[in-house]
Amino acid sequence: MLERALLSPISGRGEQGPRQLARRRQLVAQNAPLVVAVVLVVGMLAIYIVLYAISLSAFPGTFEAASITDHAIPLSLAAVGQTMVILTRGIDLSVGGMMDLTNALAALKIQGGFLTEALWTVIILLIGAAGGLLNGLLVAFGRIQPILVTLGTLSIFQGLALWVLPSPGGHVATGYTSLFLNPNAPSALLWVILLGLAWVAFRRSRLGVQIFATGNDEQSARANSVPVIRTRLLVYVLGGTLAAGAGVALATTSTGGDATGGDVFTLSSIAAAVIGGVSLFGGRGSAVGAICGAFVLTVLIDILFFANVDPLFQPFFQGLFLVLAVGASTLVGRYLMRRR
C-alpha cells in the first residue's frame, strides 16, 4: 500500500461547503431528467384530477386508478425494454411487431387451466427472447445499424403475427386476466413496483453497469474490460423478453387478440423512454423514468378525453406534448447543472 506521507498530496478542491449538501445537489443535477419525469407524472395526475372533478363533479376513485394502471402496464414493460436498448446507444423498432406476435399468441393460447397458461406464458417470453437474440446477433456480430436491423425484424414479427392470428379474436382466460386486471383496486400497481425494484437491483448488477459503460463509449468500455459484444447481445434479448411480456400484458388488459394491436408501441415506447429521461446518445437514463413516462402518456390520453379533444386530433396533441415535455426536461436539466 502506498503511504500518504510519501506522496505530496495535490489538494485544492476549492471551497466545498457542507459536504452532504454538495453531494445531494450533485445527485439532483446528475439525475435531473429523472426528477423531471417524476414531477411530470405528479403534474399530469393533478391536471387529470382537476379536469375529472370539473366535468363529472366528483373525484376519481379506485376504479379510475385501476384503469390507469392497467393501461399503463404494457407500455411500462415495453418502455423499460426500450430504455435498456437505448442505453447501449441502440434502438429497438421491432417492439411493436414483437408485441403484435406475442399478443396474438397469448390471445390464442393462454387458456385452459393453470398449467397450460403458465407454460404458454413461459413459451411466449422465450419467443420474445429469441426475437431479441436475432436482433442482438445482427447488431452485435453483424455490425449492422440497430435502426436497420430492428426495422427489418419489425416487419418480420408483424408478418408472423398476422400468420398466427389472421383476424382479431381469441382471448386470455379470465382467471389469468385477473392477475393484471382488477376493476376494484389498482392491484396492478404491484407489478409496477416490482418492475421498478427489479430495475434498481439490475442497475447494481455487473450487466447493468456494463450496459451503461457500453453506451457511454464503446472504446473506453473495452479498455475497462467490458465484453461489449456480449453486452449488446444480452440487452436485445432482454428487450425482446420485456416486449413479449408487454404483449402478454396487452392481451390481458384488452378484450381480445389483435395482430396489429402492438404496432403503436414501437413509437410510444420510445416516447415514454425519452420522457423518462433516457439519452438517445446512450449511457444515461433509467427504467424508473421510463415507467414514469409510460404513466404520463397514459394519463395524457385520459386528459385529452376530458378536455373534449376530438380523437382524430389526439396524435397531434400527443406529439405536441412529447416535444414540450422533452424540451422542458432538457431546459430544467441544463438549469440544474448550471446552478451548481
Binding site: Q30, F212, A213, N216, D217, Q219, N224, S279
Partner: peptide
C-alpha cells in the same frame, strides 16, 4: 494509461475508479 483517455465520461469518478471492483 493511453494517450487518449478512456474514462467513461457520463459516469462519476467513483464509478470509473471502482469499475469492476465495486
Amino acid at each position: 494509461v493511453f494517450q487518449e483517455l478512456t474514462l467513461l465520461d457520463r459516469m462519476t469518478v467513483a464509478e470509473n475508479l471502482m469499475f469492476g471492483r465495486e
